[in-house]
């Protein structure tokens, strides 16, 4: 290999071209965010243009935008925090004590994540309407917590199963309480699992649209709903609006996979495939 440095260079160039090709549609939209309205809808695509910040400033000044963005952050981070606490407790119990029905509950929870979103939201919508929980903050955040639980549970149980029981035994024999054993001895061992569950569940909630559209209301709306409804109402689509929102909203996930690349595999496979790429 080292005998042909130019061949290696050519190979790396090829890989970069493939990566850029996959990124190019996103790049095109990011570029559109800095174009003037006329340049976006010009019949011959404009590749070279004078960048303007007007679109982004206009979107930020939009009355609801910052509220919705804040709600995206609050809902995704808050619900995933709840989900991780709940599923760590359950995963610890499932992994250490194996109560009867462990496999069955794990299976049922997993299958709830394999149903189309519209089938999940339908019964919840019927229930929320009767209970009066739709359009409320707690209804939304707890629902998203439930949405994040199966995945966190699977990741954390996988990681906990990999931690030797010796840790628990040593801690207990040396006089540690059960809570101490669980949180101070075992918890630090599964930190990668916690990070993976945290980041990828946040991503899923962050990108979610249908649940928020149907169950949310004033005060619990996130950006995807703004994007979708903004596009759907009335004839002409305001493309500079769409492009700037997309730019602002898609940057955090992209930055997240840059920094947490080694968790990508665990995160995208329910924790069933371990390793790095």
């Amino acid at each position: 290999m080292t005998a042909h440095p130019w061949r290696q260079r050519l190979y790396h160039l090829l890989l970069w071209i493939v990566a850029l090709l996959f990124f190019s549609p996103v790049l095109w939209i990011f570029m559109a965010a800095f174009k003037s309205g006329g340049e976006i809808v010009s019949p011959t695509p404009v590749f070279i243009f004078r960048p303007t910040m007007d679109n982004i400033i206009r979107v930020i000044q939009e009355p609801n935008f910052l509220d919705y963005l804040k709600m995206s952050f609050v809902l995704s981070i808050g619900s995933v925090l709840i989900a991780i606490v709940v599923s760590f407790l359950a995963a610890y119990s499932f992994s250490r004590y194996r109560p009867t029905g462990t496999n069955f509950i794990m299976f049922l929870l997993l299958s709830t994540r394999m149903v189309p979103a519209s089938a999940v939201v339908l019964p919840i919508f019927l229930m929320y309407t009767v209970l009066g929980w739709s359009k409320t903050f707690h209804g939304m955040i707890l629902f998203y917590a439930m949405f994040s639980i199966p995945f966190s549970l699977w990741i954390l149980k996988g990681f906990l199963d990999g931690v030797s029981l010796r840790y628990d035994e040593t801690a207990l024999v040396n006089g540690g309480s059960r809570l101490h054993t669980m949180f101070r001895v075992v918890l630090p061992q599964v930190k990668p699992g916690l990070v993976a569950a945290f980041i990828f569940n946040i991503l899923f909630v962050w990108n979610e649209f249908l649940f928020n559209y149907i169950l949310g209301g004033q005060g619990t709306t996130m950006i995807p709903v703004l994007l979708a409804t903004g596009v759907k109402q009335g004839g002409m689509t305001d493309w500079s609006f769409v492009a700037s929102i997309s730019l602002i909203y898609m940057l955090p996930p992209i930055i997240a996979i840059f920094f947490f690349q080694k968790y990508l595999l665990v995160g995208m496979t329910f924790g069933t495939v371990r390793g790095e790429v």
């Binding site: 996959f22 996103v26 990108n207 995807p224 898609m250």
Partner: peptide, 12 residues
């Protein structure tokens, strides 16, 4: 850049 498409919101 290569893995970006799969973490984007489908709505966007």
């Amino acid at each position: 850049l290569l893995f970006t498409p799969m973490v984007l919101p489908p709505v966007a």
